[in-house]
């Protein structure tokens, strides 16, 4: 029986490792359906949160009579309503994501990202939330809005399967577009190497964050980009622009690592400043560990 497209990205080992975990919204999310996530809307089947003073027009049913008896003043109760969560994966499919390290047999960056995105979408689906997918390079390539259902999951997987790296990176533009199209607050998971103007990247992330989205930035890089292990003189060719630059790795390694560290710090600090969650991912590390640590971290940090 032919395999469904994208199934290959559902790594059983990865799924097994996160089988007991769930992705919880860190912030309030707005879902269509009652689910496990806190919803900013007050209504039934919600959790009591606090009191506020009665103002004419409030529904009398919300008056806390016990509080009246105690204080001879009128107060109303406020409740949080649990709803289903939209999780949108923004997957960078620019040319730089096509890099596969020279040494070792590990996955290329795009494959790693697709596997990570597929695992997240599956987790979301399993916990009856709504996964979605956006692939982009300089512009949005594919926009699969968040929806529930197995069929939708397979749609996402099929899009992942057909994905190929190419083109340049322009994150800021893409984030703004995505932010405009998102009508409900949810979790936005950005999986990218972040190669663009760092200010543009941070600006884009901020665009999403200020709209109330729970943004998580998986800064995905290959181990060789991180450590720059090259020895011999070579002509390095940019995967996005095709420009070649002859470089002596031995001579430039130190400077490279410094610049790279600064770039990474800029991204991280920018994410921190706008409330987005920053996760550095080295493709040398197993995906299941990355995902598990992330989910555990969120559980620990979540309310």
């Amino acid at each position: 029986m032919p395999e469904s497209p994208g199934i290959r990205f559902l790594d059983p080992a990865v799924l097994r490792s996160i089988a007991s975990l769930e992705l919880k919204a860190r912030l309030l999310v707005e879902g269509l359906y009652a689910s496990r996530h806190r919803c900013p809307f007050y209504g039934y089947s919600v959790e009591f949160v606090d009191h506020r003073e009665y103002t004419p027009g409030d529904e009398p049913r919300t008056i806390d009579w016990k509080m009246l008896a105690r204080t001879e003043r009128y107060f109303v109760k406020r409740f949080e309503m649990e709803s289903n969560m939209n999780v949108l994966c923004l997957l960078d499919a620019s040319g730089s994501m096509g890099y596969r390290g020279q040494y070792g047999t590990r996955l290329g960056k795009l494959e790693y990202a697709c596997t990570l995105a597929a695992a997240l979408c599956y987790l979301v689906y399993r916990q009856q939330d709504s996964p979605g997918l956006v692939t982009f390079d300089t512009a949005i390539r594919d926009f699969v809005p968040s929806r529930q259902g197995q069929r939708h999951l397979f749609t996402i997987l099929a899009r992942l399967d057909a994905l190929a790296a190419g083109g340049e990176t322009r994150l800021g533009n893409v984030f703004r577009t995505v932010a405009q199209r998102l009508t409900r607050r949810g979790i936005v998971v950005l999986i990218s190497d972040g190669y663009g103007d760092p200010d543009e990247v941070i600006d884009g992330v901020r665009h999403l964050a200020v709209r109330g989205h729970d943004v998580a930035f998986f800064h995905l890089l290959d181990s060789e980009e991180v450590t720059f292990p090259f020895q011999a003189l070579a002509s390095f060719q940019d995967l996005e622009t095709g420009v070649q630059r002859m470089s002596d790795p031995l001579r430039q390694r130190k400077a490279y690592l410094e610049r790279f560290g600064r770039f990474r710090e800029a991204i991280q600090s920018g994410c921190d400043a706008c409330g987005a969650e920053y996760r550095f991912v080295d493709t040398a590390g197993p995906i299941e560990r990355v995902l598990r640590e992330y989910l555990l971290y969120r559980r620990k940090r979540g309310r």
């Binding site: 994501m97 290959d222 390095f236 995967l239 790279f260």
Partner: peptide, 15 residues
């Protein structure tokens, strides 16, 4: 010199 594809040359200087 061998040509090595690399994601980004932003951190490399021309030799």
């Amino acid at each position: 010199f061998p040509v090595l594809p690399f994601p980004s040359l932003r951190f490399l200087q021309q030799e």
